[in-house]
Write a protein that binds this DNA or RNA. Structure first.
Length: 491
RNA sequence: CGGGGCGUGGCGCAGUUGGCUAGCGUACUUGCAUGGGGUGCAAGGGGUCGGAAGUUCGAGUCUUCUCGCCCCGACCA
């Protein structure tokens, strides 16, 4: 492992790639486009899962599990849905291998061809709505509020660890409702859950908004999303919540008898976030020394490093460290004591900075003598010496301060990178030079949106919720516009 | 699928017009010193040079074929 990380201003993309590897989060696997999520990276995912799962349950949802494989015919039921996913589906055609006639290896047994091919799920709407048909007869069966934690496969051309991989982990919620209003309410509620999670745990400010037609989920009436801004000025969609209307109910013939005794199609939503959030977490906060993790999602919040010369010193320090560790753990703080004698303190400091551990305590002979401890915070890289007495409370407070500080920093960055622009020149300058969001008038047509994308590669990230109405002229065509929308380069 | 690049100890690389025992950094092992920001010195282990065929007295180096990976573009959470 090389010691130096590429600096962000040197090559942001390379910085990201190296950081993921060096912080030991994930690595490329033997399978093209698929990653191995290593224990430290997976621990972050587990923290994300834990918090979201709690939030889903608090809002009345339950977990279930649906198959990985989906019969091909299910996909053709909803026209736009097929259209959207057809180009990136992995297909299972056979169910058996046999040994090669010429000796070594195995080949596909052509006699074991499936009657109907199976699609490896890119998302589960179709299999789930096929299933819901059997669950729903009456309004009394509604709503159904189900979530599943699963893996999905989308055959992408180009992949990057966490940001875009062929297989990724996510959760997908699929709900069924008796009324349009209730489904709409659910869609927005889950968007709010995502926004709250992003801001309170990931410490990433988000903009909630609606997608334009061209960015909409295949098969949805409306797609809502939370958009975040990365340090290089590119936007990243952190989660989506879809109002599916009655599209899937009609495609899978899911009707229910309402209170008036009339048959009606069921209203639906779906919503998801993926391991991509880890990519957002990395790019949102980390610096040239490595990862910066928000305390509320850090698998290890505090590391204690002993500094010693003799075994006697180490033993004494270990004793003191374990006392401190216990007092921290009593406050619900996760602590690691690194008493390894195989690495020097300086090496450990660099290592834990690379891994983004929010708080580091160092204890040496001097501290033992003075009954103090050196406390260093990862976000600001500052250090101070504090008395051991009351250290647990101080650390608890510090963790909270760090969480607030990195959120505030990200918020300031985001806010200072939303640029109101009214001319095409200013628009291009934001997209091509400054980075960040261009908040500009758009005439509302897909044609204009496509032209802008063609000329600048920028896309409409969203139309923010509660967007103020404002008369203006489209930044490209000069046609009348009723509101501004957010454009940006995006991941 | 189009354009570019690369395959040599675990990782990162050098290896000139073919030439002698395949080398450097790092990591690893051992010893001694060191220990408050990636420690120093010394000794040591580790290689079918991506694979196959060919040219040659001789191939990491030349030729042909082949496999794989990375980067840029079209597609995307």
């Amino acid at each position: 492992m090389a010691k130096e990380l590429t600096r962000r201003d040197e090559n942001y993309s390379q910085w990201y790639n190296e950081l993921v590897l060096k912080a030991d989060l994930a690595e490329n696997s033997a399978v093209r486009g698929c990653m191995v999520i290593k224990p430290y990276g997976y621990a972050i995912w587990e923290k994300i899962q834990g918090e979201l799962d709690r939030m889903f349950k608090e809002t009345g949802h339950v977990n279930a599990y649906f198959p990985l494989f989906i019969p091909k015919s299910f996909f053709s039921r909803e026209a736009e849905h097929v259209e959207g996913f057809a180009k990136e589906c992995a297909v299972v055609t056979h169910y058996r291998l046999r040994t090669d006639d010429k000796g070594k290896g195995v080949v596909v047994d052509e006699t074991a061809k499936l009657e109907e091919e199976l699609i490896v799920r890119p998302t589960s709407e179709t299999i789930i709505w096929n299933t819901y048909k059997g669950w729903i007869q009456s309004y009394r069966d509604l709503p159904i509020l189900v979530n599943q934690w699963a893996n999905v496969v989308r055959w992408e051309m180009r992949t990057r660890l966490f940001l875009r991989t062929t297989e990724f982990l996510w959760q997908e919620g699929h709900t069924a409702h008796a009324t349009r209003d209730e489904a709409l309410e659910e869609t927005v509620k889950m968007l709010d859950v995502y926004a709250t999670f992003a801001e309170q745990f990931l410490a990433l400010p988000v903009i909630k908004g609606v997608k334009t037609e061209s960015e909409r989920f295949a098969g949805a009436i409306d797609t809502y999303a939370i958009e975040t801004l990365m340090q290089d000025g590119k936007a990243l969609q952190g989660g989506t919540s879809h109002f599916l209307g009655q599209n899937f109910a009609k495609a899978f013939d899911v009707k229910f008898l309402n209170r008036e005794g009339k048959l009606d199609y069921v209203w639906a939503t779906s919503w998801g976030v993926s391991t991509r959030l880890i990519g957002a977490l990395i790019m949102g906060h980390s610096d040239d020394n490595g990862l910066v993790l928000p305390p509320r999602l850090a698998p290890i919040q505090v590391v204690i490093v002993p500094i010693h010369k003799t075994d006697e010193q180490l033993a004494a320090i270990t004793e003191k460290a374990n006392e401190i560790k216990k007092s921290l753990e009593a406050l619900g703080i996760s602590v690691k004591y690194d008493g390894r004698d195989t690495h020097k303190p300086g090496w450990k400091f660099a290592e834990y900075e690379l891994k983004g551990i929010p708080v580091r305590l160092a204890i040496g002979p001097r501290d033992l003598e003075n009954n103090t401890v050196e406390i260093a915070r990862r976000d600001t890289l500052t250090k101070q010496v504090l008395p051991v007495e009351g250290i647990a409370q101080a650390v608890k407070q510090l963790l909270s301060d760090i969480q607030d500080n990195i959120y505030r920093k990200a918020l300031e960055f985001r806010d200072s990178n939303i640029h109101r622009v009214d001319t095409w020149e200013a628009f291009r300058e934001v997209i091509e030079v400054k980075g960040g969001f261009a908040y500009a008038h758009w005439d509302g047509t897909p044609e204009t949106e496509a032209r802008i994308k063609e000329e600048t590669k920028a896309t409409i990230r969203c139309i923010p919720l509660n967007n103020p109405a404002e008369e203006g002229k489209c930044v490209l065509t000069g046609n009348p516009s009723k509101q501004r929308v957010l454009f940006a380069m995006a991941y």
